[in-house]
Design a protein around this nucleic acid. Structure first.
Length: 420
RNA sequence: GUGCCUAUAGCUCAAUGGCAGAGUACUUCACUGUGGAUGAAGAUGUUGAGGGUUCGACCCCCUCUAGGCACCCCA
């Protein structure tokens, strides 16, 4: 085996077939974003470490970011998430932007993690935010955007669910259990992990926070209560709004949905496949103050992020990504010999001007080889222009799918191909 | 960063410590004006990398690299 220079661990090469899938997903999220009136934006891929130190803090920056010194000695970070960049961009123009602002973005991100299924070190992420509104209507709108995307790519409510919860509801419920405020945030993080830890280990950790046996029992019944949301006026309205927008069948209340990030302050949601065979497809929620940490005036909002890796796995699992290979509309123009080559090239140019995708043979190989090549690049049609056709001012049009062929007068070629 | 599993032809996988193979894909030909079929022939490997044990290693041991699964974290 030849030694080929290796790619960076956790990165992916997008060969044309993979690139087509990525573009297919991108096309859907772009259409959905725009259908709700959101505008596309982007920030730089390189940011100062400082930007993240202010906000994301904790592990995301310390352990899971690519950080390096540039030639001037400054610490530069490959962006692990977009929210801090968004916060800066909003804060810089806080007085001239129109709020609520509806913005979306799609681009590459990097996290220094151990690669595994659904997790790479370089990934693409869709970010979409509604900034400047504290209303439950804005929360519902973002949840509806998420559901619209899932519907548009063919994921049905029987296949995926949007699990939702409200952090304030949980906070209130914890208070009623007599849990002191210092333990609450640690407890929220534990609730987030209840499905990942063995039951006894989880209980041990909960008791370690200072809860007694009675509180633990009450907590467990709380986390099993699928009707808990009805105690929250906000969640009741949220569900009602989702019903009006025709997305309620995607909803599934889950008192254990919390989200790991600290900046969420209200409604949070995550999309999963129903069997939970895969990781979260997307996740987001309401935040009370987007720009405070980067020096702006307090500004609430709601947003979510979706990585390309998990959603593609889920889509492939359900067989929802169309076979792009069959969808090339390319016309292949064969070249019979050096005498006919100029006419082949002229025809190819005419067809391109008429809007067709045209590939020409680069030499005068045997027709059989040229047609085999046309077949292998999945061209839909092949044109044969030999001495016979030239003399009669005709072109032989071969349909590579139906195996049929017909002679078409040169002057009628464009209209003939358009009607096919 | 932790634990476990895996790595053989382009791809999918075989091979008791004793000659590295099959299917598929590929190239050529049958077919010098016609592609998916059929038949014939051909080519393909530092068995992931490096070291060790052994008369002898794809096979056993160690290290590294990459991937997978579970933690951690999250998209």
């Amino acid at each position: 085996m030849k030694t080929i220079v290796k790619s960076v661990k956790g990165t992916r090469d997008f060969y044309p077939d993979e690139m087509a899938k990525r573009q297919w997903i991108y096309g859907h999220l772009k259409t959905v974003s725009e259908s709700f009136g959101y505008q596309q934006y982007d920030g730089p891929c390189l940011e100062t470490l400082e930007l993240y130190a202010a906000k994301s803090g904790e592990e995301l920056v310390k352990e899971q970011s690519f950080v390096f010194n540039d030639r001037g000695g400054d610490l530069i970070t490959l962006r692990p998430e977009l929210t801090p960049s968004l916060a800066r961009m909003i804060a810089e123009k806080q007085n001239e932007l129109v709020f609520p602002a509806r913005w979306w973005s799609y681009g590459p991100f990097w996290r220094y993690e151990r690669p595994q299924r659904g997790r790479t070190r370089e990934f693409f992420q869709w970010n979409i935010d509604l900034i400047g509104s504290d209303s439950v209507e804005s929360d519902a709108e973002l949840a509806a955007v998420a559901c619209s995307f899932m519907r548009s790519v063919g994921l049905s409510p029987e296949q995926v669910k949007l699990r939702y919860n409200d952090r304030q509801l949980m906070d209130q419920a914890f208070s009623e259990l007599g849990i002191d405020s210092e333990s609450k945030s640690a407890l929220l993080r534990l609730v987030d992990r209840i499905d990942k830890l063995p039951a006894d280990v989880w209980e041990e950790k909960v008791l370690g926070l200072g809860l007694d046996q009675r509180q633990l029992t009450a907590l467990k019944s709380l986390l099993a209560d699928v009707n808990l949301w009805q105690r929250s006026e906000r969640l009741v309205k949220f569900v009602s709004l989702m019903r009006s927008m025709g997305q309620v069948e995607y909803l599934e209340y889950d008192p254990r949905t919390i989200r790991g990030l600290d900046y969420y302050t209200g409604i949070v949601f995550e999309a999963y496949d129903v069997n939970q065979e895969f990781r979260a497809i997307l996740g987001g929620g309401h935040y009370g103050n987007l720009v405070g940490d980067v020096g702006g005036d307090p500004l609430p909002g709601v947003g979510f992020a979706m990585g390309d890796v998990v959603v593609q796995l889920v889509l492939e699992h359900f067989g929802l990504i169309p076979d792009m290979k069959t969808e090339t509309e390319t016309i292949f123009v064969t070249v019979f010999d050096d005498q006919t080559n100029p006419e082949s090239l002229r025809i190819a140019s005419d067809l391109r001007l008429a809007g067709f995708k045209v590939v020409t043979a680069l030499g005068t190989e045997k027709l059989g080889k040229q047609l085999k090549f046309a077949d292998r690049i999945r061209a839909s049609k092949a044109l044969v222009i030999g001495p016979d056709e030239l003399a009669k001012e005709e072109v032989m049009v071969k349909d590579l799918q139906t195996h049929s062929q017909s002679s078409v007068p040169r002057a009628q070629l464009v209209s003939f191909l358009r009607n096919e």
